[in-house]
Design a protein around this nucleic acid. Structure first.
Lengths: 231, 231
DNA sequence: TACGGTCTGTAACCATGGCTACAAAATCAA
DNA sequence: TTGATTTTGTAGCCATGGTTACAGACCGTA
């Protein structure tokens, strides 16, 4: 019965390194539940018990944060192949910290965390591959979150921008690169408003520290860029 | 040779649920390296390859962030029993994102990540317990980091304070509680300056929303507290 | 090529909250 | 108890960056 999903989940970070026929056994062994949702339907309700790790098999979902006051805002948009609730699923009790709603039609696979952890009777050896994958996913997530906190900890906007650009520079060792965000998304990510960031970027260009055009950025004065990062 | 460390690592979150004699086998099987450091010595150098997951066996360490400009500041202080580098250790390549220095004399155990993941020839079954522990540690960490980002995403200081207090209220369902931070530490955690926070707390008290004394807080007007959380 | 939608730059206005400095209070060790 | 150290409250000053508003640029679609 899981044959139909093989194509959809093949190559997913959760199943990396598992061959197709093993993947089918794995699914039959862990028996994930696959549920279809219509646009707007609730996939996960904040505060409720989780069915397991979520995998977007088709369509997409919105991760929604609700404020104590009742406002809602979209925290993240996830497309096909995305894995969510991977951290909360391994906690006891596993309570969803956010609400997830279907954006359009979608199919979501819920993989019970305990069936991942405990080897089955047949003790299929790809369990251990999946566990390694999960460790990698969780570690990656923790690193990304740490990075973001690092930026948000910097008080001045120029500092945040500089730290962000320097981080890319340090990884690529190139002073010219393309950033993966639009300007508005970058402003969001850095926790500042778009017009303010636009103004600051303009200043930094005027001062001869950087240059940019669309998503292409160039670091002109590496020293002054580094100098503006103060925590 | 690992007998001397049993007492120090027993009860550590990494070894939770493993009995003493199993623990000894586990250590002999995973062969962690234990190194002594003097005050100020570098335990981990940012950018270098990690020896594995770090466990503070005795003494304490400081986690140090270095800015691109060369400034250093203490990101966290870890005491006996603390586990560090648990996320970076599972990545490939496993590069330290921060510097860790010994505060005073200390003994640090480095547990190679790959020896945790891959079951040994004897396939000791406590491997799987440890893996579950690590999954829990990483998940917990991701949840904590997420929570912090949630606070930092809120623009107004009153909103951050309110979200923080409401979070405690939601967990305890009590309107009176003791917070685990000093005021200055709380200000740090929420990413604001202490005098500013002090001023804002005073205002909230004047307006009859909260009351506090030292680390004891009382929520007086839950609705208005919830109303000030805006992302 | 005309249209709607989204993204981006710019500018003026001003509120939030950072900074500094000082004194009172609390905590701790001797 | 006393003195030293850390934590906390308070106040004034003002810079950073949020807000709003508008117009031009850009993009995909029909």
């Amino acid at each position: 019965m899981y044959e139909v999903y093989i194509n959809a989940v093949r190559g997913n970070s959760l199943f990396k390194g598992i061959k197709d026929n093993d993947l089918l056994s794995l699914l039959e062994c862990t028996r994930p539940e696959v549920i279809s949702f219509q646009k707007g339907e609730t996939v996960i309700m904040s505060g409720e018990k989780l069915k397991g790790i979520g995998i977007v098999v088709s369509g997409g979902v919105d991760v929604i944060k609700e404020t104590a006051g009742g406002d809602r805002y979209i925290f993240a948009k996830l497309g096909r192949g995305a894995v969510f609730a991977e951290a909360a699923a391994f906690l006891n009790p596993s309570i969803a910290p956010v609400t997830v709603a279907s954006a359009g039609k979608s199919e979501i696979m819920f993989l019970p965390a305990e069936r991942v952890i405990f080897s089955c009777e047949k003790s299929c050896n790809f369990h251990s591959i999946m566990i390694r994958n999960i460790l990698e996913i969780l570690s990656n997530k923790a690193m990304l979150l740490n990075k973001k906190i690092e930026y948000l900890t910097i008080k001045s906007m120029r500092g945040r921008i500089s730290a962000y650009l320097l981080n890319i520079y340090n990884k690529s060792k190139k002073t010219s690169f393309k950033i993966p965000y639009s300007k508005s998304d970058l402003a969001d990510y850095l926790g500042v408003t778009r017009p303010s960031m636009s103004r600051e970027l303009g200043r930094m260009r005027d001062e001869g520290i950087i240059n940019f055009n669309g998503r292409d950025f160039e670091i002109i004065d590496l020293n002054r860029l580094a100098g503006s990062v103060k925590y």
